[in-house]
Design a binder for these strands. Structure first.
Lengths: 344, 344
DNA sequence: ACAGTTTAAGTAAACGTTTAAGCAAATAAA
DNA sequence: TTTATTTGCTTAAACGTTTACTTAAACTGT
């Protein structure tokens, strides 16, 4: 329980020491015009001397704002969200805000419960990537109607009228597919997972468009769904797929599928890129030193987080930003490496 | 500024609706013995009906506790801290606590400033990994003396009497070095970075012990220091080192040095493991699919985060845990892969 | 000299909870 | 039957800020 509490110094303490009213302390510290220059200095000095730190909860209660935001994301296992958080933090820190972090583990129930809690006024705004299986969006709507601004990044919810920071999923999948076709692939499979319709459908769309443009008919059997967890089972699923469908190119649409794909190929004694070429959506720096170096679609994770935070804080600061009009797409980059090298 | 505020329902509202006092509402919701069973039910029912959610800041102010902890870590770029956060979150969520996340970017100044802020009573406890260059620990001592419990994980501060969750850095470096020696290495270099004395000195110690046991004299020139950022410069530093010192084994003591080491070897046209063998302290799942698969020291990141959180929450819950007596070491695992395969 | 304004404070209410203290009615003990 | 005790509720103060309103003194201009 540990309650040492070294006689906390608060405004009352300062007021007593300086023989002025509490209001004077408060106003002096907030640099109000009401207070004389000399008094202000005395207050600031004594506050520093006594290590006064304002109680955020009293302040939040009175002001009805918390200088705190929530970051709600599915997980933090991979490099995308790590980098996005870094981007967010770069703004949060600078703005003297505080960030609460919540992981939904892609569970709708947890997400809904978190939103329920947030309707208490705990945060001034929310930055979020929605859970994979979130279909009912009432919880999000309710928080928004309660006046809490929300900015989506990456895994956006199209039906909520607010700012959305995305990457060009359609186009980057299109480019990845086109790249594989140009490297000679004729039978390209798309490895995907359940959920995240706004993203994965776009990627599927870009994939199909590239195929169509190259007069390749896209077949249902080429689209394969894995579990959204890194596990052995996915390797088996993929091996099964590869042996039956025999693709000569694979696009792995999420980070952890890179390792899965490589291991599946290895177990099947398939050579990348000779027998099969691989592209993956991933931000991992190790892509360059894989066996072989992996061609990746690199997403602007840091920038997405940063941009989302900028919009939210701009809005909170009262700048004339209409969140519902902000729909920003930042480009991903196709980084070509040996895993898709043309074989002749 | 967006202040929609849909007439928030608070205890006053409920009291009015049910025609009882506010105190009755409060006590009913906290299941106090003071309140009759029937009244309790009516209160709970109406609260649910009107979507009442308690104001956390009013509650925190009055109770002088926030149900919130701070996670203070250097960064979140790599898999270690990602996994540790997952471990922490697994407890935080279950205990209905909230987690504020702060990144120090390994800056002492930022860390000190964060601690200063936390002395306001913003959090009930702190989980932290100290910044690389933190030497002056006054800020930590002061927070602790103010009655805020602190639990360290991984990058601990030995001079603060409180719980510390570490991994066996000395022993795992010892094992890694021994492994390299057994694979035939005669000239092993340790690649390290500035800072983190509690960890990196232990790893250096384990490294030296293994050398001594194998009658190999450890030379100063074999210990090389890189920048704690993933960048091109480190590759140059490492190349320079390898060409002059010509090690036949390398131990990279932090995650991002894996990619650096591989790229340096590649640029020097050195074959791993034939020309040089490599071990790295890293948790990345891609280690298995690198070229060649990388022998790693896998740290129990998730478990460390989880254990740290367990201790903190146990203490906060009033369990008889003497934090200053908790000094837990969780074992790392040496995962042998091709990057250290013996060559004959 | 006097009304009007400006300056530099102070007073007190409010934010939404929690809880110690009080109190009337019902129940138990004597 | 009287006295304690328990039950179920209310009152009001407190947590530490912020801020609308008041006030007194010091200027300003005429």
């Amino acid at each position: 329980m540990a309650e040492a509490k070294s006689n906390k110094v608060n405004m009352k303490t300062l007021a007593k020491v300086l023989n002025v009213s509490i209001a004077t302390i408060s106003k002096a510290l907030r640099d109000s015009h009401d207070i004389g220059e000399e008094t202000k200095q005395r207050v600031i000095e004594t506050a520093k001397l006594l290590h006064y730190v304002p109680n955020p909860y009293a302040s939040s209660l009175r002001k009805r704002s918390s200088n705190t935001i929530a970051i709600i994301i599915p997980e933090i296992a991979d490099s995308f969200f790590s980098q996005a958080i870094n981007g967010i933090e770069s703004i949060v820190g600078q703005e003297k805000y505080h960030a609460l972090i919540y992981l939904t583990h892609d569970s709708y129930e947890r997400e809904a419960q978190m939103f329920n809690d947030l309707s208490s006024g705990r945060v001034d705004g929310v930055l979020m990537s929605v859970a994979s299986n979130t279909k009912d969006i009432k919880h999000i709507q309710e928080l928004q109607q309660a006046g809490v601004p929300i900015v989506f990044f990456d895994r956006v919810c199209e039906d909520i009228p607010t700012a959305k920071i995305k990457t060009d999923d359609f186009n980057s999948a299109y480019m990845a597919t086109k790249h594989l076709l140009e490297q000679g692939c004729k039978n390209i499979s798309l490895v995907t997972i359940e959920g995240y319709p706004s993203i994965l459908q776009a990627r599927e769309g870009g994939y199909k468009k590239a195929l169509t443009e190259h007069q390749v008919k896209s077949k249902e059997e080429n689209i394969i769904s894995c579990s959204n967890k890194y596990n052995q089972e996915n390797i088996a699923v993929l091996k099964e797929h590869i042996t039956t469908v025999k693709p000569d190119g694979i696009i792995a649409t999420v980070e952890h599928l890179a390792t899965t794909t490589y291991l599946a190929c290895e177990e099947l004694k398939l050579n990348i890129p000779n027998d099969i070429k691989v592209v993956c959506f991933t931000n991992q720096i190790t892509a360059a030193i894989l066996n072989p170096p992996l061609t990746t679609v690199l997403q602007p994770a840091y920038d997405m987080g940063r941009k989302a935070a900028e919009l939210l804080f701009g809005h909170l600061a009262g700048k004339p930003i209409q969140l519902e009009k902000e729909n920003i797409t930042l480009p991903s980059k196709l980084i070509v490496r040996d895993s898709t090298r043309a074989t002749d």
